[in-house]
């Protein structure tokens, strides 16, 4: 019988896995995220926005790669804006960067094992967790091939495997569907829904159709500010027949963005 640890049954001491208040993050000199207020609960959230809206910078701030230059950011109940020890927060994070760097001579299994070790998982749990992560992304048959021989889509899936290996409570995926073929994309959406049942998943993408199908909530940002937040269904309702786009969600997206631009310039 498995022993349930105290940590597993402890009630969480925070209301939102991700909570940003007037968050400011710089990318170089440029203020890429500006006074952003956002609260994310359990579920799959799609982060949408035009190019240069600050999606990647926001993801990096949530993943604790960059420090915020102003405001407050709380991830899993731990404040990550100050000089606090981020260990506890980071153990609960999974992150796939937009530019997924890897060690070409490692096999997929070695790489995911290495990441699991860096994530301070218990030594005995690593081999099982690695196998499970690799199977969940459908790379089990290529687990022992070197990463330099993998195709773009396979690399992306290896990247997702390393992000989910520790069963993160907050999973951040920056452009995860780039390079996936249609069938893999379907599998990926299924995986997202599964993970979103009990953790907070934030998927940054510029593909509106991914959001419409796989995400329960949509966060729309532009020029570093939160423009709109709601369910995917609500976003679809925002669009009228006159808006640009091929699907209801796309029309809703352009309608919300156009309304926001109108407000800003007014």
């Amino acid at each position: 019988m498995r022993t349930v640890s105290l940590a597993e049954t402890a009630s969480s001491t925070y209301a939102w896995p991700v909570h940003a208040e007037k968050l400011q993050v710089r990318a170089g000199r440029h203020l890429a995220v500006d006074e952003l207020d956002m609260r994310l609960g359990t579920g799959v959230h799609g982060l949408l926005g035009p190019n240069g809206a600050g999606k990647t910078t926001l993801m990096r701030a949530l993943a604790t790669v960059v420090k915020a230059s102003g405001g407050r950011l709380t991830v899993l109940g731990g404040e990550v804006t100050g000089n606090a020890d981020l260990r506890q927060v980071r153990r609960g994070l999974g992150y796939l960067p937009q530019h997924f760097g890897f060690y070409p001579r490692f096999t997929v299994r070695e790489f995911v094992e290495y990441i699991a070790w860096l994530k301070e998982m218990p030594k005995a749990a690593i081999p099982g967790a690695v196998q499970r992560a690799v199977e969940r992304v459908g790379l089990a048959d290529r687990a022992d091939t070197r990463m330099k021989t993998l195709s773009g889509g396979m690399l992306r899936r290896a990247g997702i495997a390393q992000a989910i290996v520790n069963d993160p409570a907050v999973l951040l995926l920056d452009e995860p569907t780039v390079g996936l073929d249609p069938e893999q994309r379907l599998d990926f959406r299924e995986l997202l829904r599964e993970i979103g049942l009990d953790s907070c998943v934030l998927v940054s993408t510029h593909l509106v159709e991914d959001v419409a199908v796989a995400c329960s909530d949509v966060v729309l940002i532009s020029e570093g500010r939160l423009v709109w937040q709601g369910t995917a269904g609500q976003l679809a309702e925002q669009g009228g027949a006159g808006d640009a786009g091929d699907s209801a969600t796309e029309r809703g997206y352009s309608a919300v963005l156009r309304a926001y631009r109108g407000r800003v310039s007014a």
Partner: peptide, 18 residues
Amino acid sequence: LDPAWELTATMPRTGLPP
């Protein structure tokens, strides 16, 4: 020179020990 620096930067096991 570290291709996986962005991942390494988000790990709990970072800083001086590694």
